[in-house]
Write a protein that binds this DNA or RNA. Structure first.
Lengths: 331, 331
DNA sequence: CTGAAAGCGCTTACAG
DNA sequence: CTGAAAGCGCTTACAG
């Protein structure tokens, strides 16, 4: 590999001059600059990034720590981050924490040692911040330590679902929340409940029943079964996640309850499966792109005033599982 | 950040000595070593990896270029690679080529400039290798240039499916291949066909019809429809991918053809959806882990004799979509 | 505008 | 066994 020295010799200039044309911003006179450019081309020279990093003490790499790249949601995030970083000429270093706080701590340290430009972390459950680091860090989706968080506006999204259901005419609704130990689950639930409460009037009352499960298919199926076999069957079930909702869909199929004819079902997240399932699921689409862009942006603007948390709204995606309740007047 | 110099001063030794205890292998006498260790601990020292890299001209980072991390298959691969790299104390730098040969070329160059230890690339379609690089490179799943390829043994896997179908008693089989422009599709098809041919005897003849589609749900649904509406309906349909197979499943549901009672359906890949779909799909599980491990291993052993391609066998996963043909004697 | 030189933080022969 | 010193390939004041 040719070095800056080789280029300098070939062009008959000093290494300082070569470095200056590399930096572009400086004013190297035309004739010299051309000789240098020519020499670089002929030698197929490209600067040693490691040396540059050592000298300037900064490297154009971002660190990303996520629980599991195999989770489609995180994969989407990772893709968005990689693209946004690439736009700025940065690469991204990826680590899977496997939702293990221990591993996460090690990875944060490793990234610090590599002196990356900054780190984006989707925290594990129960992650602990070891030592203070000097790098900019931003939490994404799930908060890491005390660092500012960029996340979907779960409260708002659930509210949109509530509005949608209400507008469709549903007045007998069941909500299946995620585990209350999780922030997301709480936020989604309270967004839904508070919107319903706001919509609820004495003249046009809404019946809302609350259930709690885990964010997975089986939980949805089990709870769906229970709700649908019960005496007072609701006309709509809003689930706190797509996985829950898809479980509900299964239970409905099992019990021969027609969706959306007899029952409306909604989810949250818009995982790939949501549009693959039959009928296709009405849900809230998480703003992957906006989340990724904002997180990367913060790393680059970290010099500025410490920005607070950011909640980004997701869009309501109306598909085939939501419709007016049976017997409703057509709209 | 404290440097090696600070440690040396604090311990009252030379930087060379500190460096030697860092390297471990060397013999620094006990008393000195302890003083150094103590100084490092007190200063919370960790070596500057960039400086080390510049000096030693090697960095403990692997490059990974894949078409799209959002594709579950690639995500699995990426995860395996990251874990295997971590075991060896290496990080991985991830790039999405978006199946764009142009972007891919840029990314290879970028990784070379960063002087990573080696690069694993899942090639785009029509990727072209620009200039020769001095780093070890290995192709994964899809060949990049002339570099050795580590991939699933598609031929073998399809043969296993053929065996499975034959053993169940199916003698009237349809095979839906992927697009013949793709190597994988060809290999899977020829693996299936040649196995069937081997099994075919005058006394116990097999009827095999061949179809060609794309690797997606719609294609499977469309072709499935055609096959199942035709006059000579087969008792089994082997699809070249899970997506195709799931499309077939849909068409069967549409046409009220019971799976597996009246029709056996099989896929290839074992995507997540394969075990989520109802009934759950019988398929060939790609050996993600083994693929990842082998690819990483090759990067580390690249000094040794140039190894050739490697085809790793996947396992047959028997689930609910395969059964003896209707009217078969019970086994 | 350009060159000579120092220095980023390490590692590793070379002496002793 | 340990220290002094060179050097990895850059960038950037400092002179001129």
């Amino acid at each position: 590999m040719p070095t800056i020295k080789d280029v300098a010799r070939k062009a008959g200039v000093s290494v300082g001059t070569v470095s200056r044309v590399l930096a572009k911003n400086d004013t190297v006179k035309q004739p010299l600059r051309e000789r240098v450019l020519k020499a670089m081309a002929e030698l197929d020279y490209s600067p040693n990034l490691t040396a540059r990093a050592l000298r300037t003490n900064r490297i154009d790499v971002l660190g990303l720590i996520i629980p599991d790249i195999t989770n489609p949601f995180f994969a989407q995030l990772a893709k968005g981050i990689e693209m946004e970083a690439a736009k700025r000429g940065h690469s991204v270093m990826l680590s899977n924490s496997h939702d293990d706080p221990e591993a996460e701590a090690v990875q944060v340290t490793a990234l610090c040692d590599r002196a990356v430009r900054g780190i984006i972390v989707v925290a594990t459950h129960g992650s602990q911040v070891r030592r203070a680091v000097d790098l900019p860090i931003v939490s994404l989706d799930r908060r890491y330590g005390d660092y500012a968080l960029v996340a979907t506006d779960h409260f708002d999204g659930s509210g949109k679902i509530a509005d949608h259901l209400h507008a469709l005419g549903h007045r007998k609704i069941a909500y299946i929340a995620g585990p209350m130990s999780m922030d997301v689950a709480q936020q989604r639930k309270s967004g839904f409940v508070s919107r319903i409460e706001a919509l609820n009037t004495p003249e046009d009352p809404i019946e809302l029943t609350l259930h709690e499960g885990h964010f997975d298919y089986d939980s949805g199926e089990e709870i769906g079964h229970r709700i649908l076999s019960g005496p007072q069957r609701p006309t709509a079930i809003a689930a706190a996640s797509d996985q829950l909702a898809i479980g509900v869909l299964r239970s409905a199929r099992d019990l021969k309850v027609d969706v959306p004819g007899e029952l409306t079902v909604t989810g949250f997240d818009d995982i790939t499966l949501a549009s693959l399932v039959v009928p296709r699921l009405t849900t809230i689409r998480q703003p992957f792109e906006a989340l990724a862009i904002s997180a990367v942006e913060r790393l680059f603007n970290s010099a500025e005033k410490e920005p607070g948390d950011e909640a980004i709204a997701g869009d309501l995606v109306i598909r085939e599982t939501s419709a007016p309740p049976p017997g409703a007047k057509s709209l």
